[in-house]
Amino acid sequence: MRIKSSLGGRTFDVFNYVILGLISFVSLVPILHVVVGAFSSSQAIIHNRVFLWPVDVTLDNIKLVVQTSTFWKAAWMTIKVVVIATTVNMVLTVFGAYPLSKSWLRGRKFFMLFLIFTMVFQAPMIPIYLVVKSLGLLNSLWALVIPSAVSAFNVILCLTFFRSLPEELLDAAKVDGMGEFRIVAKIVVPLSLPIIVTLLLFYAVGHWNSYMGPLMYLNDRNLQTLQLYIYSLISQGNSNDIVAAAAGEASITLVPAAIEMATIVLATAPIVLLYPFVQNYFIKGATLGSVKE
């Protein structure tokens, strides 16, 4: 009986490792395929010789994308949005969460209800759009910053963390004559780095990847973000123009797919390169949300 069950257990273990290996493989293949494609020659791509390793390794694809001014325009716009929007997010989140973390603050209950209500009842897309429009934010960078200036959920994560800070310390700082703003900047933030970094990363990745916001609020092609740029590159065949323009001046002939893969790689690189170092912050953040208050 014992031997039999452990045999079954071992069969299961083997099966389990195989399944998990397969799942990991499937998670990686589409990404890997694009990465090797970005570094393969157009000839290899068009003759279907590129699978999961690069063929005729070349930097031509990457070079051409790097020389495309519209790519840089979109990348610069995205970087500006990420930096400005994340800064606004963090300032509003930290300063919004700090007073709410004080249980003795009068009006706290009302503020909390005010916050939670917005999480339960969400306004439809159009009235939000009309508000953004009437504020004159359409077709400006601020349309991607102000309408998503703070997330109620993140404020709650943040204030839960602040509550765990020793209140004696904050009181002592007050006795020493520090004002609340300086207490937040000099004591609360340095002591709360784990949650601050986690929220910062959540916000930043959200802005980097956002597609719906730019799609709704920006019509001007000069303002498009990387995500809009990539989507139109692939779905509307804009890469043909880049290839045609390049064919005029250079001797190399590239296929659209090569340009598209190179663009995808460049747009993903910041996140994928950063990911191994910050993975733990993300994982902590994901489980923080599951704590029932």
Partner: peptide
């Protein structure tokens, strides 16, 4: 490996699906 795709935007996922 399985967490990684979460960090790609939908536009990129579409791009990768297109390449597949």
């Amino acid at each position: 490996l399985v967490y990684l795709p979460h960090f790609l935007s939908w536009a990129l996922v579409y791009g990768m699906a297109y390449m597949m």
